[in-house]
Design a protein around this nucleic acid. Structure first.
Length: 477
RNA sequence: CGGGGCGUAGCGCAGCUCGGUUAGCGCGCCUGCUUCGGGAGCAGGAGGUCGGAGGUUCGAAUCCUCUCGCCCCGACCA
């Protein structure tokens, strides 16, 4: 703990790993690509879950749980789906000491088992819509893993809905995209672009994939969430039909949408600095930590007494506060540790403060430190926390604005990508071939076709062919 | 799967080229004293059989063979 973190500017990737591990978010597990999510990291995830779950329920969804093991044959029913996921499946071949008649795959996502189930649930238009979400773990055997960003097993939520009409499914897809956008911006304080994925980047089995894309501190993009319009692909693959009010048999229309523990990684890389994590107050496990400072037993009693009184007031005011009463550690050590862990507010209470009825209030994001009257701390803290929440969101937005560029020529594209990074708004001829060529040449991918971008005629940066709008390119995680 | 690196104490490493007493160092841990408003100091102490298997040898962390695993970079992905 005595050692300094690697600076972001020296080695961003190493900085990230150190922050995640030393900040007590997660650690490596014995199996390749797997991680142990430690209590502090899990508390952060739980806070995310709580808000997301509330938002899902507010939009009419209910939770359910489907099994982790899926018969291998289910995956094969939807052609694109099986092609997309086969390479990364973990397969159970033996159980109970015997070789299985049919292999089971550990779910990489649950569309197939859910649509097999929905077939039984859906008979009539009166059974629709079905608006179900599940919180679960999934396994994808990725080549290259990184803590939180891409782990072999990860936690997520996956919503799976069934609708009577294409319009309803499309509405649902966009509704959940909007839920994700709100969550990311209002709770994580991470500004995101909303857009449509190109065919090359869309979910295996979807008609259309929408996404939220965030910009990380190293100017690389991160896909933070996806919402898929599945059309009738899974309904047809699993033969899920309903009788309409006109007594006609129709295939149902579907969506699925998900966000994962990757969001924890997004939070780390969107706000973190050379001192460690910077957590947004709305999600921070501890919004405030109090560090009592003392020498003698009398001073200890006095400062701890003041801390406890403040703690009661703050809790009553709805602040998630913790007193760091560890006796064997000195204050300076605690300051550094809580900064590493990104706690938004730190309160220092020493003998001098007790005497003058004040505390020292330190803000993590700005690293500012100033005295604050004890008497008004509890009343002021919620407002200060909200100001911090807004402030780090504004900072992230400004960072994204500085790192978003409009480029019109191939040279400009290459130069900007290599020298500046960030989001590049450029014209593209709309073909998968061009997209692939650009990726081969530059490692940049089309992150999305933004929803809110103005339509504008132009010429493709690579081929010069006509383009009706700009798309967003970036190097991505 | 291709390229690179690494497995020696809880963590980070040295030792290995050129085999040789009880395998070192830093951090952390335990005890005590002094400290405590920005990552404490001193003293004492516990802890490893060197990833695994086999081989060479009087003798292997060190040499040889095989093997397992992890990390980093790339292609694949939430």
């Amino acid at each position: 703990m005595a050692e300094k973190l690697t600076k972001q500017s020296n080695d961003y990737s190493r900085w990230y790993q150190e922050v995640v591990q030393r900040g007590d978010l997660a650690d490596y597990a014995p199996v390749k690509g797997c991680m142990v999510i430690k209590p502090y990291g899990y508390a952060l995830w739980e806070n995310m879950q709580r808000e997301l779950d509330r938002m899902f329920k507010e939009t009419g969804h209910v939770n359910a749980y489907f099994p982790m093991l899926i018969p291998e044959s289910f995956l094969a029913k939807e052609a694109e789906h099986v092609e997309g996921f086969s390479p990364e499946l973990a397969v159970v071949t033996h159980a109970g000491g015997k070789k299985l008649e049919e292999n089971y795959v550990i779910r990489p996502t649950s569309e197939t088992i859910i649509w097999d189930t929905y077939k039984k649930w859906i008979q009539s238009h009166r059974d629709l819509p079905i608006l179900v979400n599940q919180w679960a773990n999934v396994v994808r055997w990725e080549m290259r893993t990184r803590l939180f960003l891409r782990t072999t097993e990860f936690l997520w939520q996956e919503g799976h809905t069934a609708h009577a009409t294409a319009d309803e499914a499309q509405e649902e897809t966009l509704r959940m995209l909007e839920v994700y956008r709100c969550f990311s911006e209002d709770y994580m304080a991470v500004p995101v672009l909303t857009g449509v994925k190109t065919d090359r980047e869309k979910f295996a089995g979807a008609v259309r994939t929408y996404c939220i894309e965030a910009l990380m501190g190293d100017k690389k993009a991160l896909q933070a969430g996806t919402s898929h319009n599945l059309g009738q692909n899974f309904a047809k693959a699993f033969d899920v039909t309903y009788l309409s009010s006109e007594d006609k048999r129709e295939h149902v229309w579907a969506t699925s949408w998900g966000v994962s523990t990757r969001l924890v990684g997004a939070l780390v890389m969107a706000h973190g600095d050379d001192a460690g994590l910077v957590l947004p107050p709305r999600l921070a496990p501890h919004q405030m930590v109090m560090v009592p400072i003392y020498r003698s037993d009398e001073e200890r009693e006095a400062t701890m007494g003041a801390c406890k009184k403040l703690e009661a007031e703050l809790k009553a005011a709805g602040v998630r506060v913790k007193i760091d009463d560890r006796d064997h550690l000195r204050p300076g050590f605690k300051f550094a540790e809580w900064e590493l862990k990104g706690v938004p507010l730190r309160v220092e209470v020493g003998p001098r403060d007790v005497a003058s009825e004040q505390v020292v209030l330190a803000q993590r994001h700005s690293r500012e430190k100033a005295p604050h009257p004890m008497g008004s701390l509890a009343a002021d803290a919620p407002r200060i926390l909200e100001e911090i929440q807004r402030s780090i969101f504004e900072k992230a937005k400004a960072f994204r604005a500085e790192n978003s560029h409009r480029v019109d020529t191939w040279d400009d594209f290459l130069g900007t990508l290599n020298e500046k990074g960030g989001f590049l708004y450029a014209h593209w001829d709309g073909t998968t071939e061009t997209e692939a060529t650009i990726q081969e040449k530059t490692k940049a991918t089309i992150r999305c076709i933004p929803l809110d971008d103005d339509v504008e005629d132009g010429a493709c940066i690579l081929t010069g062919k006509p383009s009706a709008r700009r798309v967003v390119f970036a190097r991505a995680y």
